[in-house]
Design a protein around this nucleic acid. Structure first.
Lengths: 158, 158
DNA sequence: GCCCTATTGTGAGCGTAGCGTACAATTGGC
DNA sequence: GCCAATTGTACGCTACGCTCACAATAGGGC
């Protein structure tokens, strides 16, 4: 099924004998992803210091706004979150009056989510901040490179 | 569900007039980085469930092993971490007996870090696990794509 | 030599977020 | 109508990021 793409310093066909030698930490793709994520996250937090929202919180607001009435489980799935984790985020946002839970007409186990007017307002401002943040992030790439990068990243999380 | 499918055609030349409209959340590069990171992190934790180490902890062990006697501040800088955050990680690793702090000959404010034999042993096993993890991650890319991806990610955190 | 500032490690406290586990209510297949 | 699966919820634990504060030390200017 999966191609065996063995890495750089090791030979191309035969797995390395000493498994403990993975080469330099600089050759570890996961390491680079983490560093990039941390950098982006940090700048995001700076940009959003006045709105006091995290990436995940904005993601949730955005998705709920685009899909009013969505259930928590669907939300969790789309954002790759645990159900329990989703709970915490929803609780916080609800506590701040940015969204509300309502009953679901079809399934009484489910709760439907929708933004309050305050939530919509905050999201609107958040999007403006994101525009700024994205410009900062994308400024180091050409449009083509952004497409390439997104395409490659997509292959990881899908 | 209203969906404005702007797709990749979004704002090719002119910045959008309405700053609050950043398009689909799918067009946000930061969003993709976060999803990719979460996916990688999750798989990492699965791979390391028996060793009970996080990405950061392995990174610290690795860097200390490669640079014995390094100071905490230098470590923090290389891993893009806060000094206080670094403290916590070092404390945990020291508490588990994987590394130790020693005095610095030149600067009495500094502490030098070095792995214990147990730490070296754990790192050795961690590297084997990383080899597995990296194969899983890189299996979806060609060698060339891995290089491209790393190059693009590097531009973010440097 | 002596001050002033910067650096380094440390601690306490707060917030976000991930996970496992357990449980009640509800649904849906059989 | 019963049983397994789903959904939301709560609780506890851990990791980790931040701020702020403080003590010890270092280094530059005088």
């Amino acid at each position: 099924m999966r191609k065996e793409v063995v890495e750089s310093a090791a030979s191309n066909v035969v797995p390395p004998v000493d498994l403990s030698d993975v080469g330099e930490i600089r050759d570890i793709l996961g390491f680079h992803i983490r560093l990039a994520y941390v950098t982006v996250y940090r700048h995001f937090m700076e940009t959003f210091s006045d709105l006091d929202l995290t990436q995940k919180q904005v993601s949730v607001l955005w998705l709920v706004s685009d899909n009013p009435g969505v259930a928590q489980t669907d939300l969790a799935q789309r954002l790759h979150m645990d159900r329990a984790t989703t709970m915490g985020i929803i609780n916080r946002l609800e506590g701040r009056g940015l969204l509300r839970r309502g009953p679901s007409p079809q399934d009484r186990r489910r709760k439907t989510l929708y933004l309050t007017p305050a939530g919509e307002e905050v999201l609107k401002r958040a999007k403006a901040a994101i525009w700024e943040h994205e410009n900062w992030l994308k400024s180091r790439f050409t449009k083509r490179e952004v497409q390439t990068l997104m395409g490659l990243l997509d292959r990881i999380h899908t």
